[in-house]
Design a protein around this nucleic acid. Structure first.
Lengths: 327, 327
DNA sequence: CTGAAAGCGCTTACAG
DNA sequence: CTGAAAGCGCTTACAG
């Protein structure tokens, strides 16, 4: 209950509020003796300063926020690792919030209400216009999966297009052109770009795009599993599948194992850890996640220091085809 | 930049600050016309209320914190999912902070400085005394992997002992008693309890504990892999291994696959998702993680509402042996 | 080295 | 329905 304030501390120590403040924060000259009295009072009363009051004056939070669609997706963890290290090195704090709950989520509220000095945003739940409004209020933002070039916002992207292009090209190597595309959510930027890469690869080879090869999913393992099963129940077993991410591809593998199906060529995207541990090991398009986190936070701190000109063109990170057991 | 305050809004709308506040928060009688003027001013100026100022009066944050050793461990994500849902349903916000960086971590600072109304703590980096001090200041805390019975702190635990006991007992089923124990970190409560269960199972069967069967690890996949390899290089291939968690067991599996070793009986602990996807599928001690998150947050809200008496004895969640392909 | 006082941006009785 | 003013808990020039 208590609500111990600096006033109580000052009173107990028999000094003024300002002196107490100086002593506690080591921010002004206080005699050793007085300081001791004050620090003792702090101890005895178990005084904890009120952050809100502090911040009212400071107007800055010294904290960076990461904002996700969901707290703890499998791919975010490696990016977050990189971010965590840089943010700590810079002496800032880091908090993670999710958009769970829609427009009234913690992510929305915290980003909107000045809880953070800057932000890194993953996922599409926070709308462009929303982010633009925040950025206008001088909160630098790095977005990791959308193109957005306005003041105070920098895009850092994976080269989705080339990755998908190369994956499809690779599947086409034997001139057999039945390649299914298991999609992510329609509104996902990553998914759209990957789809473009897929299409372009077909086009280059003069292969017509077939609607029935496009299977709608949502990036979850479950959707990969179910989509494969749906096909299977219709008597269809694709010869080749390019899955817009690894998680869906893993769902496909699970389904195939269940039905004891072999010989389907499969490539995923992202190279999550699991892909190298599952059996058969998943071939995939790999990109550097930890490094992306490091880069994102470094850019963010440059923006905070006004040493990074925005708007700038997106920074694009390359991808690499990793062949494993499914191709 | 801007720093638009309610004062600016009031001025632009030609009203007093209090009227502006009433209109914005819908908290007092304001004529429709005045209200419109004010709301227009808000729009035009892109006014965002300062939370800190608001909270200064409110003295409460309406947010719950989860505090981890590391942002994004593989096992935490399912617990967090349960927490996230309950916290949102209660109309609270949720932020996640890690103890990365030691005593000066974001977790320490945020917990200490009243950024949250209540906390759920996983991992051992936040010391008992520290948590007790926080709790004394009327911040309810639920701890998920330690026993701590003081006012405002509730322990919720997995039944580590029985889980480990059953795992070991199961490995003993054929009377072959060479069972290695791959440990977690010495200071991990979970590890200690699991080790006790292992010991007790041996004791019951009158099997002496052999020092050379105890292999020190730290719960990471890497340590499981390396420890197995070390043994292998010494010419030792254990007949049976009880690994204190799944991640290390997965390291063991990777090592065995690499060396093409078969027939080692292996049981892990935690039943992380990967364990059911890796090949061979890992037998393990399973416990309900999502439910643990739900329970933890429900208890927390009861504490917040003073409807839960503390100190209370720890709540213990049961475990279950899941046999898969490694036994 | 110490203290009185203004001010951070808001809310909320209270008076009109 | 509207406004002047006190106060939330702190920091920080400024005076002494």
């Amino acid at each position: 209950m208590s609500k111990i304030t600096i006033k109580d501390v000052a009173k107990k120590a028999g000094v003024s509020i300002s002196t107490a403040s100086y002593a506690i924060n080591n921010t002004g000259p206080v005699s050793a003796k007085t300081k001791e009295k004050i620090l003792n009072a702090v101890k005895e009363l178990n005084y904890i300063p009120n952050v809100n009051a502090k911040r009212l004056k400071e107007t800055t939070t010294n904290t960076i926020g990461i904002f996700f669609n969901e707290l703890f997706g499998p791919i975010y963890s490696e990016i977050a690792k990189g971010i965590e290290e840089v943010v700590h090195k810079e002496g800032y704090d880091l908090i993670a919030c999710s958009t769970y709950g829609g427009d009234n989520s913690t992510a929305h509220k915290y980003l909107q209400s000045g809880y953070v000095d800057a932000a890194i945003v993953l996922g599409s739940h926070l709308k462009d216009e929303f982010l633009e409004r925040i950025a206008k209020n001088n909160i630098p933002i790095v977005v990791l999966d959308r193109e957005l070039s306005v003041k105070n916002i920098q895009s850092i992207l994976i080269d989705n297009f080339s990755g998908a292009y190369n994956a499809t090209k690779h599947l086409l190597i034997d001139n057999e052109d039945e390649i299914y595309y298991f999609t992510g959510p329609k509104d996902s930027y990553d998914n759209q770009k990957r789809f473009q890469g897929y299409k372009m690869a077909l086009e280059t080879m003069n292969i017509p795009l077939k609607e029935e090869y496009i299977v709608s999913g949502n990036f979850t393992e479950k959707s990969g599993y179910e989509n494969f099963m749906k096909l299977y129940k219709k008597g269809i077993i694709p010869k080749k599948i390019f899955s817009a991410n690894d998680e869906m591809a893993i769902g496909v593998i699970t389904a195939m194992k269940e039905k004891n199906i072999k010989g389907v060529k499969l490539i995923g995207f992202d190279d999550i850890k699991l892909s190298n541990l599952i059996s058969p090991k998943l071939s995939t398009i790999s990109h550097k996640k930890y490094e992306m986190g490091v880069l994102a936070s470094n850019v963010l701190f440059k923006m905070l220091a006004k040493k990074h000109k925005t708007p700038a063109i997106p920074i694009i990170l390359s991808t690499e085809l990793v062949e494993r057991e499914t191709t």
